[in-house]
Nucleic acid binder design. Structure first.
Lengths: 206, 206
DNA sequence: GTACCATTCAAACAGTCGTTTCATACAGTT
DNA sequence: AACTGTATGAAACGACTGTTTGAATGGTAC
């Protein structure tokens, strides 16, 4: 019936992604997850140990992929003259939007990400910062070198605004904004273009 | 012991604001709330009817105030030439930042707001849109008339980015970014200045 | 065939959840 | 003085939570 050819672990991860995105980590129960995934309740604790660990593996699976793609995109952008603010921002946002548009639950994950950031959950922030902080720092460094006259303090403020704008926009992405006469691919490219223009101009503010 | 001279209702509202901001609506229980508020468990259902209704009244209390201040600030800005993108944005963000810096739990509420927006909770979005949407539309109209050459579609995208940037920046506001040598008031003015510059430049993007 | 292993299952565990009930306390009114 | 309505209190309600248990299953290796 429901994707029985996927492994139990994968079905749990997908169902959890959807339900946590919809109702929050505390709001969605393991019974809901296992019901949607069509697996036994005990399977979660058997395969993941605990609900908390399930959440961690959920993030790991997606963020590993996202970070890898961002790294590759940044390297490519830095090796392809002319290196502009726009090309670096494009390397940052494009993998994220591609994930947001992905069929296999990526949409849910992006909303989950927005939710996780809105929560002040220090444990989760630490997890992201520890495992993926170095890539974010590389982007910050590249952007900084492209804006040599911008004071460090101003840069930090603006990078914060940029990530906020991106996170927020992405959590809506694919839900309300896509005009029906645009394909998903067109919509994605359009969103990336809009964001890059906005962010570049904001970063270059006088 | 703790603020016994405040009414039961007020103590519940304040405690709920703090705890919901920290742990989410599903994550914080009424027993935690009533324990912090130093009131009996049954008091919540007696004064508010249900947990859900408590949440609604929580938002109503703050958003009524915020919307009123924004309306006043916008009117003042529109009557004070020269009317610029910056002065309109200032009218939008200043009351919010003032709330975020407020002593009486406003800090918690701002984080709660960010959380509520990250949640896809249609019920809550509808509530905000119904009750406070008209003010947001007035801001959008003012901004639109200050950017006459900007296409409608571009404007919508950028307004979305702006509100995202503001929401996320505010949810951190007062937590990590304040340098110790700045007073709260200075920090608030600084944040407003940074945001207005960034947002205005982003909206004016070529 | 049988021993082994990972996996799945139904059932139960001890807690916690939001909500309700009913008794009690204490003001203001007659 | 007795009555009234609002507010608070302790205790219990049934439902739901994450987790654990021990038996059943099915395939692989010997």
């Amino acid at each position: 019936m429901t994707n029985q050819h996927f492994s139990t672990k994968d079905r749990i991860l997908s169902a959890a992604e959807d339900l946590f995105a919809k109702s929050g980590f505390a709001g969605a129960s393991l019974r809901q997850v296992t019901s949607v995934a069509n697996v036994n309740l005990a399977a979660v604790n058997y395969h993941f140990g605990s609900k908390e660990n399930l959440i961690n593996e959920l993030f790991k699976r997606r963020l590993d992929e996202l970070t890898a793609q961002r790294t590759k995109a940044l390297e490519h952008a830095l090796q392809t003259p002319p290196v502009t603010l726009e090309s670096v921002l494009e390397a940052f946002v494009s993998p994220a939007l591609s994930l947001a548009q992905d069929r296999g639950g990526g949409q849910s994950f992006v909303r989950l990400l927005a939710r996780a950031f809105a929560e002040q959950d220090q444990r989760l922030r630490r997890f992201v910062s520890d495992n993926y902080g170095h890539v974010l720092k590389e982007f910050a460094k590249s952007i900084s070198s492209l804006l040599p006259h911008l004071a460090k303090e101003d840069l930090y403020w603006r990078l914060d605004f940029v990530s906020g704008a991106l996170t927020y926009a992405m959590s809506d992405f694919g839900m309300i904004k896509k005009p029906s006469d645009l394909s998903e691919e067109q919509h994605r490219r359009n969103a990336a273009r809009q964001f890059v223009r906005f962010a570049a101009a904001g970063l270059r503010a006088p």
